[in-house]
Amino acid sequence: MEKFTTLQSTAVPLLIENVDTDQIIPARFLKATSREGFGENLFCDWRYDSNGQARPDFVLNNPLYSGKILIAGRNFGSGSSREHAAWAIYDYGFRVVVSSFFADIFKGNALNTGLLPIEISESFLQQLLSAVHANPKTLFRVDLENQELAVPDRGLSETFEIHPYKKMCLLNGYDDIDYLISLKDRILAFEEQKPA
């Protein structure tokens, strides 16, 4: 997993609530046996019409907006457990997703992919959205060590929660597998004492 420390970037606003993982990456694109290439089909049915033409009204097709931060409405990532949703967002080039509420499985998958989910208050979310709408070139600053998301030009900032273990993993690029394997003796001892 790639390390994540700080990020300064413009952002892409996605003003939709309850974005489910079927929208992020429809099931018909889950036939691959590797992790790469899902970004091409990110939000496919919102991004392209049935003839494969880009829909100009969808934000990813709007040349005004770009950047490594996706700002989305509440309850982002509900539905299917497909980690391919996090892979698609990451593969497209995003490194941070900001919302006022995330679905549990998506949040865990994002953290395991190296994509930072930042949960902020609904009022701060609205402030961020109005900032990016007023000026699509607005720069956002994410500081994982200090758990802070800021819009320096506007003097806005809010801290966010992240589990200390997950934070350590992201800062160092570690994943859980190495850690779990290091616990092998304890796992074997647990199996030993566990009733059948």
Binding site: S81, R82, E83, A86, I105, G108, N109, N112, D175, D176
Partner: peptide, 9 residues
């Protein structure tokens, strides 16, 4: 339900 990274874990 779990994601694929967790399947590997």
């Amino acid at each position: 339900g779990i994601g694929t990274s967790q399947v590997a874990m």
